[in-house]
Write a protein that binds this DNA or RNA. Sequence first.
DNA 1: CATCGTTTTGACCACGAGGTCAAACTCGAA
DNA 2: TTCGAGTTTGACCTCGTGGTCAAAACGATG
Lengths: 224, 224
Amino acid sequence: MGEAAAKQEKARGSAEGKAGERTPDRSNPRAQALLDAAEALLAETGYEGLSARAVAERAGVNKGLVFYYWGSTAELFEQVLERYYAAHKASLAESFAGEGSLRERVHEVIDVYLDFMETHRAYARIVQQQVSSGGPHVGLVRRHLSEVLGMTTAMLAEVTPESGPLAARHFHLSLSAVVINYFTYAPILGEGFWGTDPFGEEALAERRAHVHWVVDAWLAALER
Amino acid sequence: MGEAAAKQEKARGSAEGKAGERTPDRSNPRAQALLDAAEALLAETGYEGLSARAVAERAGVNKGLVFYYWGSTAELFEQVLERYYAAHKASLAESFAGEGSLRERVHEVIDVYLDFMETHRAYARIVQQQVSSGGPHVGLVRRHLSEVLGMTTAMLAEVTPESGPLAARHFHLSLSAVVINYFTYAPILGEGFWGTDPFGEEALAERRAHVHWVVDAWLAALER
DNA sequence: CATCGTTTTGACCACGAGGTCAAACTCGAA
DNA sequence: TTCGAGTTTGACCTCGTGGTCAAAACGATG
């Protein structure tokens, strides 16, 4: 998808439309409005709530513009997801670059991970939806997952073997599962047997403490 | 839908006078064929693949029968999910009833849990779909989750406090996350950086070893 | 055979999805 | 003022969805 190529179409205005392609300007306010509307909608209602109609209406814009600017709904959503993942990766990457003992660094990563989840409450749901339903954007998820896995592996290299049940990839999967599933299950948990609101401050703090405890247990066991 | 339903009620009421009930016999072979077809379809293609048309076609039966026997697609799927959960709960309940030390019992539960997952490969996907997309059957999931949580809590009662970050419910959530997420992420993992087929025998055995290691680490840490 | 309740069918409906398109509009440059 | 590229609109298309319904087929019972 070369967007750079599409930029310089303007020069050949009156010449001829030989390669007569469209030149929608995605920096146009309307195009951005659509993007923002899609993002908001994604956060609020999840992937299901996304439809060309809904997004256009939300943006106060004609539905046709979705296709004029973004080609298809899939492409639009891909942009939104990309934004999301980029933000996640960025915040994680920073935490990975921290200093200190392994334990300190791991805890830092967890905190940042949890912070992101708490701030972007729809994130967990969106990722899980894509993953578990084999949505059209699994490729994106895979790429993202792959990159983050790389960071984890590097960080844990000093204590985990390269293969086998204690390989870093297993811990990455397990840890992210422990983190992410709380947020996807929270709405269900809340209405009933969890007691308090799982998204309440105390509940989140308690869960955070649990996750920290969990990795401490792992690190302690790994040191043998 | 509400208006349509109302219309229908009126029509029926005036036409038949009394509480016009249907008397579809759900033990009818066709009704069962529909149920089986839905189950197969659910396992193969997940919740998305389920549609009245698809199910009927699969069962070699007219689409109208779906509504004649089951009232609505939602009700049909509910039956299927109920079956699924019942099977899961049954197998788990048996394992919970085992004897031996706490550690032995926990490992037994995990093995049974993993066995079930390996046998019913669509299970993880289905549950996660329902949970993460707030599907129409979350209620079912909640009930199921609640029951299984009860078992875990009882089992862990001797080592975990009743509240706080080390409460049994946290471990339940974390453990089931570690177990279930492998199966939802496996398809993604496979195509790329996991190396071998995540559903292959060795990979599954390796993951199983990892999960066992994980809970051993937890139990060890809890014993202080 | 005739009857009557149950079962089965296929045509049909409304709706919302993604997507297309020609016509209308906008607005800067010639 | 005219032109034309880029933009915007609304009508329209196809498809698949859940769901309805009248009529036909079936099956036991009188």
